[in-house]
Amino acid sequence: MASTIVLFVLTLVSVALGATAFTPSLDLRPLAEFYLENCLNQFNKDLWAASPEAVTSMLWDYRGLDTVYETTVFFLAIIGSVAAFRFGEAFLRSYEESKRKQRREEGLSLIVKVITRLTFVLIVALSIAIALHGHLTPGGGFQAGSIFAVAPLLAIAAFSRRFVEEFGLTKNTCLAIRTTGLITIALIALIPLLSIALGFTGVFIIQNQPKPWALQPSFPGFPVYLGPIWLAGTLILFNVAEFLTVASGFTLLFILLSLPEDFFRRLMGK
């Protein structure tokens, strides 16, 4: 008990000391000022990220490497969960087969089902809109993916797991989509390095726009716009890939969590 109290007091003191230096002020910290000044500074394109959204341009450009490693942590957490709940597809199929006869009508009442059908479409549309506008408005791949994952969760609650699987969102499809998203992120991050083979110089990992200090021929960077559509270089690609990763990752977790307890008991031979 004494050690608990000591730990408790030490943590509180450290948190309190860490926060006393920060009181609200009129001025920004120099780092924040740099990001706000440069994120869409078309008069000095040396350090710009080509996005009006300072948070997204930090997340996927200035601090991009940090976010890639964060995606790695996400990958490991999901893979760990799937490994804890591993089973063969054939076993699940034989279990479903054995339960088919005693199955009654599934899901909640008609009202809930109709409302869920409506909100399912709205949630998916909203999440896609947020993912595609991540470099222009608040939001991005993470937020859009988390919003998308609510839709299968609702469908599992209102209908059943089989309803979601009839949509094509089975365990293996989710794993495949998630892997595609992760590979896309890795590829986009490595394209500048791969361009060394074409003779470009002055490149670095997760490069978005060309840098003026590179020797000629310098890396041309990713397209900032395509006709009237603003793309902001790598940012939209990263956002869409991250959307696929997060959305299918959480859907996968919800599908695994909705498997019946009886199935796992039979799987473990109890």
């Binding site: 706000l36 964060e70 942590v73 999901i78 804890a84 997060v246």
Partner: peptide, 30 residues
């Protein structure tokens, strides 16, 4: 620059939220 809030903490927090969700999911599964 003179009227916007600090974007750095927001950027750190969005990273932390996703990691927190993934780690919570792993803990629940375990």
């Amino acid at each position: 620059v003179s009227s916007a809030v600090d974007p750095v903490p927001q950027c750190l927090v969005i990273t932390a939220i996703v990691i927190n969700m993934a780690v919570t999911a792993l803990l629940i599964f375990l």
